[in-house]
Design a protein around this nucleic acid. Structure first.
Lengths: 180, 180
DNA sequence: CGGCTCATGTAAAGAGTTACATGATTTG
DNA sequence: CAAATCATGTAACTCTTTACATGAGCCG
């Protein structure tokens, strides 16, 4: 069901084609939130049309089909967004790897974290640059980039903290520093 | 494949049963990293045994079967952990909802964020308490809890920032009337 | 006009969830 | 001794990925 709402949410921003939507999954959303390939997107748009949540508002070059959210779709989306959060399991292979870091020898873990720190810093640079550009897209893309910056920063800090803890190997030592 | 490595990683910490592993998914891992139900765990442990990654080290009361990682399994796990990170798509319905927040009217978004802030603060309290307890489990559980604290803090801060931005933005350009 | 990107579609295989099913041990 | 929890297993269904497939428009 999440796919459906992801599509609805993206279309609520602006009407677009299945191709456009697929690009957004691939480029931004898939990193933190949700992912889908075109083979899932196109059939889902069909079903959503049948269910009256979206509607075809134009056909362009190369057989492109532009969809927009209907009133019904918009109200369903709002209802979904406003409903109290129940725990939905997350899947993030990257975080999984972070969590299993303790299965490595301290030196190996330290090497991995070093790598991670470099990657994170590079990534943060890219996102900062993207946000700083004057022609930066507004709306959710900018917010997503900002999320990414905070995400990578948090991740890096945590990984460095863990490495320190593991290196110290003091079973029950210092309390973690207050984040913030 | 991630499931396989998640199991390997947990078993690398200590030998345990499929039931134990399922509990860990349900309680901690599923929130940030990975999730699996027993109907996935048991068959996978079988396959991993056939593949020589884990081995049955004991059968206890109520037909419980305790597994441990083999040398082969350990080396495979290390290889997986150390390999350069390629982008693996993440799935997090919660983050998805955050990203689609901009589909709401500013007032609605603000209400949602208010709610989120309260939840986050409650959650952070719980995790802090869990970590502070002297008999707190050490190892990855403690690290995971620390991750959670930082995660909720980051999330809350971002959501508050976005709400501020949205509130400041000029009223949206005359939105096209809903098709239908 | 050849190669790239845009743009859509379907089929098969794999991963994951939900439901069904059973029995042993512990705890009150 | 009843209820809860421990503990495992399989089947059906849904969701997701990967592979196969096709063609239109754009750019050099």
């Amino acid at each position: 069901m999440s796919l459906r709402y992801a599509l609805l949410g993206l279309l609520a921003e602006t009407p677009q084609t299945g191709y456009d939507l697929t690009q957004k999954f691939g480029k931004v959303l898939s990193r933190y939130a949700w992912s889908a390939s075109h083979s899932q997107v196109y059939p889902e748009l069909r079903k959503m049309t049948e269910d009256g949540l979206v509607t075809l508002v134009g056909e362009g070059a190369r057989g492109s089909r532009t969809y927009a959210v209907t009133a019904e779709g918009r109200s369903r989306l709002r209802a979904w967004l406003m409903r109290p959060p129940e725990e939905a399991p997350a899947r993030n292979e990257f975080v999984l790897r972070l969590f299993l870091l303790t299965a490595l020898e301290p030196a190996e873990a330290a090497a991995m974290v070093k790598q991670l720190t470099l990657e994170s810093e590079r990534e943060i640079e890219v996102l900062r640059a993207a946000v700083a550009k004057p022609e930066a897209e507004s709306g959710w893309y900018r917010y997503a980039a900002e999320f990414g910056i905070r995400w990578y920063t948090m991740q890096r800090d945590w990984a460095e903290w863990v490495t320190g803890e593991v290196a110290n190997e003091l079973p029950r030592a210092a309390a973690p520093p207050d984040p913030e």
